[in-house]
C-alpha cells in the first residue's frame, strides 16, 4: 500500500517585512501508509502551513517531506501540486459554475487518465455511494453544506491520491451535520483506505476520526504530544461517551487547553 508520508525537521519562516515569523519549528512526523493522522492545535499555529507544504502550494525553509521515499518538499523547493496529494479545503473549492458531475469527473479527464465517458461513469458510482446521484446535474450552489462536503471528498477520492489532505473540512457545518459527516468519512475510508492528514481544532473530532492524534503547539509550531488511538474502526458515534474515548480525551485536553490559552493571550488571528 502506498502513501507513507515522512516529515523531517520541517521549518518554515516567513519574512514578513522585517519581523521574521516562524510558523513551523522543526516538525518530525511519520504517517504510515493508510494511517489517519489527525492534527489538532489552536488557530493560526501553522497546521495549514504544513499542509500547504505537503500539497505543494508552499515551500519549507528547511527540512524534508518524502512520500514513499520520493521527495515532496525540501528547503525552498516543492514538487508542484498534483493528484497524488489532493486537498479538501475548509470553505470548499467546488467550482460553482460547473455541475456536480463535472466537478467530480474533471480530475481524471484533465489528467488524461480516463476518457470522459469512463470518468463520468466512475463519478456517478462514487456519487451514488454517498447518496448524491440525484444531484449530479445540479450546481454546487443548490446543495447544502453537508452535501457539498461529500461531493468534495468524492472529487478528491476519484483521483486516487496517495495522501488525502483535509483542512478543517467540517468546520463550517453545524454540529449535527458534522457528526453525520464524520461517520460518513470513516465508512468511506474503510472502502477506499487512504493515508489521511486531517487538520482540525476540535479534539473530539480528532480522536473520533484518527488512528493517531498529534497536538501542535501555538506558533511557532512544535509537536507537543502524539497519541495512538487504539479504538477499533469502523467507529460509531456511540463511542464518544465510552470510557476509553474519555480517557484519551483526558490525556490530550490538558495540553490542548494550554496551547489554546497561550494562543489566545498572544492574540492569534482567527483564520475564519
Amino acid at each position: 500500500m502506498q502513501g507513507a508520508l515522512s516529515i523531517r525537521g520541517a521549518r518554515k519562516v516567513y519574512d514578513a517585512k522585517t519581523a521574521k515569523v516562524v510558523a513551523l519549528d522543526s516538525i518530525d512526523l511519520d504517517i504510515a501508509a493508510g494511517e489517519f493522522c489527525a492534527v489538532v492545535g489552536p488557530s493560526g499555529c501553522g497546521k495549514t502551513t504544513l499542509l500547504n507544504a505537503i500539497a505543494g502550494f508552499d515551500t519549507l525553509s528547511r527540512g524534508d517531506i518524502t512520500l514513499d521515499g520520493q521527495s515532496l518538499a525540501s528547503a525552498n523547493a516543492s514538487a508542484p501540486p498534483d493528484a497524488s496529494r489532493i486537498v479538501v479545503f475548509q470553505n470548499g473549492a467546488l467550482f460553482p459554475w460547473r455541475t456536480v458531475l463535472w466537478n467530480v469527473a474533471c480530475g481524471p479527464i484533465m489528467q488524461r487518465r480516463l476518457t470522459a465517458v469512463q470518468a463520468n461513469q466512475q463519478a456517478m458510482e462514487l456519487l451514488a455511494r454517498v447518496g448524491l446521484q440525484d444531484s449530479a446535474n445540479k450546481f454546487p450552489g443548490e446543495l447544502s453544506g453537508g452535501q457539498r462536503r461529500r461531493v468534495e471528498i468524492v472529487r478528491a477520492l476519484i483521483n486516487e491520491p496517495k495522501v488525502l489532505l483535509l483542512d478543517e473540512p467540517f468546520r463550517a457545518l453545524d454540529a449535527l451535520t458534522k457528526s453525520v459527516m464524520q461517520e460518513y468519512l470513516i465508512e468511506l475510508l474503510t472502502y477506499v483506505p487512504k493515508t489521511v492528514f486531517f487538520i482540525t481544532h476540535d479534539l473530539e473530532e480528532a480522536i473520533f476520526l484518527g488512528d493517531k492524534v498529534v497536538v501542535f503547539s501555538s506558533r511557532p509550531a512544535r509537536i507537543r504530544q502524539s497519541v495512538t488511538i487504539d479504538i477499533p474502526k469502523p467507529r460509531r458515534h456511540e463511542i464518544l461517551t465510552s470510557p476509553r474515548f474519555l480517557e484519551i480525551k483526558a490525556m490530550l485536553s490538558g495540553a490542548i487547553h494550554e496551547e489554546a490559552l497561550r494562543a489566545f493571550t498572544v492574540g492569534e488571528r482567527e483564520l475564519a
Binding site: F57, T59, N76, A77, S78
Partner: peptide, 14 residues
C-alpha cells in the same frame, strides 16, 4: 502565479 500580490512568490529562495 499563485504568488502574493506584492511580487514575492512563496517559492523564492532567501
Amino acid at each position: 502565479e499563485i504568488a502574493n500580490i506584492d511580487g514575492s512568490a512563496d517559492n523564492a529562495a532567501e
